[in-house]
Amino acid sequence: MSIIDLTSMGEPQSDLRKELNDRLTKLQDEISDYCFQCAKCTSGCESHKLLELEPHKIVALLKRGLLNELVNSDVIWTCMTCLKCRERCPQRVAPVEILFALKNMAVASGKQIPGKYTGMLQSILSMGLIQDIQQTTTRTNKTLKRDELGLPPLSKPIDVVKFQAGIMKIAMEKV
């Protein structure tokens, strides 16, 4: 019949849950349904002490279908992607991958992408890498660039137009 979260009066978003599960199945063969809330993930979470990320709670909310709440939260962007949760989960659930999928869904839904991700994406689009050659400072406060150190030219996409076309195509598609 129905289940309602009485705090927010929200009902489970089963369609979103299905979308996320599909995504995970395609990429990691991951089935979050098996989580039994042992919280081993949160016990070892690198982000938990600093940023209060609770991977087990993320999975619990996902299992309950409360996707909107998750997609709209800032906490999904606190994952350090150390992968300990995925490595150590006794039920082969991978909270880190669930978080990636949630962040992707947030981006796809038009939510503001935090931090420097947009800049990196633009850089990839324009030259293939997240950043161009940087000037670096030595111990003696000299500034140096790649070529001054005798390193060969940077490897990057040759035909940028074709490369961009490929990426634009991806941006239009769902996993």
Binding site: S2, I3, I4, D5, L6, T7, Q37, K63, R64
Partner: peptide
């Protein structure tokens, strides 16, 4: 028409209302 259960779910720390047959 139905049975109603309020349950506080300690995995999500949320109170849910279940309407069930």
């Amino acid at each position: 028409e139905y049975l109603k259960i309020d349950i506080f779910d300690t995995t999500t720390n949320k109170l849910f209302e279940i309407k069930t047959d």
